[in-house]
Design a protein around this nucleic acid. Sequence first.
DNA 1: CGTAAAATTGATCTGTCTCAACGTGGGTGG
DNA 2: CCACCCACGTTGAGACAGATCAATTTTACG
Lengths: 261, 261
Amino acid sequence: MLISSSPRFKDRGPGALEGNKMNAPLLRKLETYARLSEDDIAAVRDATASFKWLEARADIVREGEYATDVPLITQGLACRYKLLADGRRQILAYLVPGDLCDLHGFILREMDHSIATLSPCKIVEIPRQTIHQLLERPAVARGLRMSTLVDEATLREWLVNLGRRPAEERLAHLFCELLERLRAVGLAEEDRFELPVTQIDLADTVGLSAVHLNRTLRALRTANLVMFQQFRVAIPDAERLRQFSGFNPNYLHLREREAAA
Amino acid sequence: MLISSSPRFKDRGPGALEGNKMNAPLLRKLETYARLSEDDIAAVRDATASFKWLEARADIVREGEYATDVPLITQGLACRYKLLADGRRQILAYLVPGDLCDLHGFILREMDHSIATLSPCKIVEIPRQTIHQLLERPAVARGLRMSTLVDEATLREWLVNLGRRPAEERLAHLFCELLERLRAVGLAEEDRFELPVTQIDLADTVGLSAVHLNRTLRALRTANLVMFQQFRVAIPDAERLRQFSGFNPNYLHLREREAAA
DNA sequence: CGTAAAATTGATCTGTCTCAACGTGGGTGG
DNA sequence: CCACCCACGTTGAGACAGATCAATTTTACG
């Protein structure tokens, strides 16, 4: 991941991004999208019983590998990323508790990108066979399908961000999204959240150089829009930040269940 | 779609992007990903029997709408796009024959982006109910799931493109992708294909201004890498273009069937 | 403490944008 | 049938956002 396991992240233990009380963030997520039966719930619970801890800055899956299991983040923060031949990196998504590292390795032939932890992560590895069984449950299949569609919608919004927004709006938009997503999983307060990420990571996320990212960050701070330091983000006036960055949370589809029958 | 139906596109009739002989591009696509039974094939064929024609530069679905049917492109070229408040536009994907306008409107509450034709398009509208029935067929469900995953992989590659590649590589990469995808559906020859798209469209695809896109195009032409004129793309040396743009077709997952059981 | 990664700042360079003008081709209306 | 018109394409000049290069400072960890 370019940045070899840095000492800076060693002590940011499991405390940082702990996931919710019920300790079954995947269930919570699926239930956002589908009405699960008792049986469904039990099946998902079984499938996610065993886990392992991974240190910060460790690859979970690497591009080119044939993943057989589907990793699931239960606690901590991870990201998808891709490296170019000359070392340039693009971060493609942040994975928060409850996010599956998709069915790519599972369904598709080989990984076309890598996934790595940013903070220490608690990870469940769901075996291929189990996924098959889960997909036979209509409600679970539906939940997973929706979750994939939301991931896709998020990618589209990032594309708009990189293609058509200037640096400050771009970064502000990212913070807006993270606030929403982390609040949805109970990992953000009203106006602040942990973000165990370096400025270099942020630069590789929004397609800027590290130096310019630093300046953009300063500009946002000066404008009293976003404060980022010590791996903590503070947003004094979320509505103003949304306005500023043109953020519209519709693409996150955070309340879908009532919608489709 | 900003550009109101332009006369320039009127005469580019159905001839341009005709889809394959069997006239069932969705089937071909699903069969790339899953082994369909006779029954499956019949069901898909039934579902895609009735169609309509849409003129070039017409919206198929608009952001914010609640789409009830799932449109499917059978002939022609379409695109997903998103508009910002001030009119900036970002094109998010090109849809070629066989591509579903996803299950978004269907599964998710409302469209978070718009879809429009670029050339005249033959479109099948699959009713909600029919999709439900199709999803009950495991092989079909699997094919659709894979197709969604490939769409997602393509979005990720575009993100890398916008985030980390300079203008010339970016544009070259797009042409590489289109060559592959159109060849996969029999709509490109070895080194050339139709692309019924303006330079403005291309600019909004790769996140450049129209002026700079024009210059970038010229640079590629001068370097004898890509010729684009009269809505036709010619690529003298595809391998050289791939090299130049860092294109690796793995993310298109064009031969997956043998892979997963 | 000493060290290395990360953050910050300044100076300079450049890729891309904006503005503005002009060229071009086909469609449309007189 | 011709002339106008409008969208698109092309080119030049100048401005500017963001990149690169090069220190220097800060921070966290050993």
